[in-house]
Design a protein around this nucleic acid. Structure first.
Lengths: 347, 347
DNA sequence: GTGAAAGCGCTAACAC
DNA sequence: GTGTTAGCGCTTTCAC
C-alpha cells in the first residue's frame, strides 16, 4: 500500500506564509494567535483540505482521539435482541461524532484469565483519550483497577448507584422499580408478584429492593409466595409464571426483573388463556425491542443507556489533557414505559 | 494527561543486546533473523512487557492496525431489533481480534451531503488498514468511489451478487428465496403468497425473483393476486396479510421479504384465530431475534452476516501491504431456519 | 504573538 | 543476518 499523497502541516504553513507551529496552534485552537493570522491559516487549510494525521498527533502528544467502549463480549452474541450494546454505542458515537473523535469497540471476556493483559496491551497500543466501561465489567474491581493503573481516564457505567473513588454514571434502578411497583399498586393491584433475576448482575438486587420499597410505599404487605427467582431467560420467566399462577393466592400483576422473563410470563398467560391486562398485568425491565413487537406490548422500564454512554464520552473528551475526573456518581434517571400489558386490577 | 512511562523498542534492544531494527524485525515477524537472536529478543519483549506504539508504527509505515466498519447510521436507531449491525460487528471483531487489529465503527448518514468529506477525513486521519462497507452503503456508487479514490483497501458487503470491478462479498439472496419457496411447495402448499418489501433496498428485487424462481422450479403457477407490496414494517405486513387472507382464493402459505412483515402476518393470523402453521404457514427473511421470541417461532432465512464481515476483515488484514484485492464477488450462502411457523399445507 | 529545533517511537532504505 | 541513518507529521520547549 503506497502512501497516498497527503497534504501536511508544512504545506499549509507554506501556503499561509507562517511556521508550522502556528498552523498547529490554529488547528488546536490554542490561544495567542492573532486573528488575522488565524484566518490566513484557516483559508489555507480549507484550500488544501488539510486533515491532521492522527498518528503523528498521537505520537507527539501522547494522546489520541479515540474513545474505547468496552463491554462484556458474550452479551453481544447471547442477547443480540436486547439492544444493550447498540444503545451504548449509539450514545458514545453521538458524543464522539460531535467532537471529532472516533469510537473503538472492544468487547472482552471477563472470564478469561488475560483480560488484564489484553486491556493493558490495547491501551499501550492505542492510548485512548478515554475508556467507557459498561456493566457488568464496570463492577469488576480487577478490570477497573487494571485500567486505572495505566492512567487512562475512564468512566464506569453501572445500573445501580455505587460509591467509589472514581467518576461513574449510573441510573436509578432501585427508585424506578419502586415507581413501577407503585404504579401497579395505583392500578388497584394488591397482589403484585416479583420475579428476581440471576444474582450475578448487580442490578438484580437493586431491582428487588426497589420492588419492596414500592410495596411498602403503597402500604402493601410483602408476601414471600409472590416472589420467584428466575435466571433472566424467557424459559425461567415461563417457569416462574406457571408456579405463580398455580398458587391459590395468585397475583393479579407480575413484575419481572427483566424483559425476557416478562416475555416468558406473557407467553404462559397466552397459553393459559389469561387475558392480559384484563386478568393479569405484566411489567418488565430493560425495554428490549421485543416489548414493542409482541401483542400486547409490554410495560417496562427503559434505562437511559444511550444518554449514559453519551455523557460518559462527553466527559472523557472534555477532560482530556486537563484535570482529573472528580470522584462521584452521576445519576441519569430511567423512565417508565407504560404499554398495553398493564391495566386496572380485575374486580 | 501525562505520558505513562512506557517501554520502547529501544529498551528492548538494549536488554537484548541488539539494534532496534532487529527488534522491529522480530516484532513484525520479518524474515532474515537468526533463531537465537529472535529468541533473545522475544525474551526481552516478554520481560519488559513491551507493546509497540501503534501511532509510531502508523506514522512510520503509513498504515494502521485499524479496520473501519461503516454502515448506514439510522439503521442502528430504527431497527435495533434486527441485530444487523451487531452481527456485522461480531464477525469483524472476530477477525480483528485474532490478528490483533482493532475495530472502529463509523455509522454514516448517506442522505447527508458531506458523507464524502466525512469519509475522506476519517481516512486521512486514521489511515485504516481497510474498510468494510455494509449494505446499503455498499450499493451507493458515490460512497464506494470516494473510498476507492483514497486508495484505502475496502470490501463491499452486499446481499445480492453484484458484478463490479471491486472485491465484494455477497450472499445468495435469490437462490435461497427460491429454496424457501420450494420448501413451502414441498410441504404441499399450492398457493404461496409473497409480500414484497420496500424498493430502496436492492435485496428486495432479488428476493422476489427468487420467489418466482422457486414457484417455477416447483411447477407452481405465478398468481398476481398472491403478491403484495409492503414497506418492510410490521404494520405493512399486517395490512398485506389482511388483504391476502380476505381474498376468496386465499393462500395457505405466506412468504414475506423480511421478518418484520412476517411478524405482522403472524399477528393478523393470531387475531383472526387462524392456526399457524395448521391453516397457514408463514416464512420470513433475515432471522431477526423476534423470530425466536414469538410463538410460534418463525421460519426464516438467516443471512451469514457475521461470516461475511469476518471474511471481509480477514481479507483486508491479510492483503494489507501486499497485492491489491482481485476483483470478484465471493458468495457466502444463507441458510434456511425451519421453525414452527411452517408446516404441511391444510387438506 | 511567532518560530526554530528537538524529539515522540517506529519503519524504510540502505549499508555492512 | 544485522546495524545505521533518515525520516513519518506532528507537538513540545523555549527562544525571540
Amino acid at each position: 500500500m503506497k502512501p497516498p499523497v497527503k497534504t501536511t502541516i508544512e504545506d499549509v504553513a507554506k501556503l499561509a506564509g507562517v511556521s508550522i507551529k502556528t498552523v498547529s496552534r490554529v488547528v488546536n485552537r490554542e490561544p495567542n494567535v492573532r486573528e488575522s493570522t488565524q484566518e490566513k491559516v484557516d483559508v489555507a487549510i480549507k484550500q488544501l483540505n488539510y486533515k491532521p494525521n492522527q498518528s503523528a498527533r498521537n505520537l507527539a502528544s501522547h494522546y489520541s482521539h479515540f474513545v474505547v467502549l468496552i463491554y462484556d463480549d458474550p452479551s453481544i452474541f447471547e442477547i443480540p435482541s436486547s439492544g444493550y450494546i447498540t444503545r451504548l454505542q449509539e450514545g458514545s458515537l453521538r458524543a464522539c461524532r460531535s467532537a471529532h473523535y472516533e469510537l473503538l469497540i472492544h468487547p472482552c471476556n471477563y472470564r478469561s484469565d488475560d483480560v488484564g493483559a489484553e486491556l493493558t496491551s490495547l491501551i499501550a497500543q492505542v492510548r485512548p483519550a478515554g475508556m467507557i466501561i459498561a456493566a457488568p465489567l464496570s463492577n469488576m474491581p480487577n478490570i477497573v483497577r487494571t485500567i486505572e493503573a495505566t492512567g487512562t481516564p475512564f468512566v464506569r457505567l453501572s445500573s445501580g448507584s455505587t460509591t467509589t473513588k472514581e467518576f461513574s454514571i449510573a441510573t436509578n434502578d432501585r427508585d424506578i422499580c419502586a415507581e413501577m411497583t407503585r404504579y401497579l399498586a395505583s392500578l388497584g393491584h394488591k397482589k403484585i408478584a416479583f420475579i428476581k433475576g440471576h444474582d450475578s448482575h448487580k442490578a438484580v438486587a437493586l431491582r428487588f429492593s426497589g420492588y419492596k420499597d414500592g410495596l411498602s410505599q403503597s402500604s402493601l404487605p410483602y408476601a414471600k409466595h409472590l416472589v420467584m427467582s428466575g435466571d433472566n431467560s424467557i424459559g425461567s420467566g415461563e417457569e416462574c409464571a406457571r408456579r405463580l399462577l398455580e398458587h391459590p393466592d395468585k397475583p393479579t400483576a407480575i413484575f419481572a426483573a427483566n424483559d425476557d422473563m416478562a416475555a416468558g410470563v406473557l407467553r404462559v398467560a397466552m397459553r393459559l388463556g389469561i387475558d392480559v391486562p384484563g386478568q393479569l398485568s405484566i411489567a418488565g425491565c430493560d425495554d428490549i425491542s421485543l416489548c414493542q413487537q409482541v401483542y400486547p406490548t409490554i410495560t417496562t422500564i427503559r434505562p437511559p443507556l444511550a444518554a449514559m454512554a453519551e455523557r460518559a464520552a462527553t466527559v472523557l473528551i472534555s477532560k482530556t489533557r486537563s484535570t482529573e475526573l472528580e470522584p462521584g456518581t452521576e445519576i441519569i434517571p430511567a423512565v417508565l414505559k407504560i404499554r398495553e400489558s398493564t391495566g386496572p386490577a380485575p374486580e
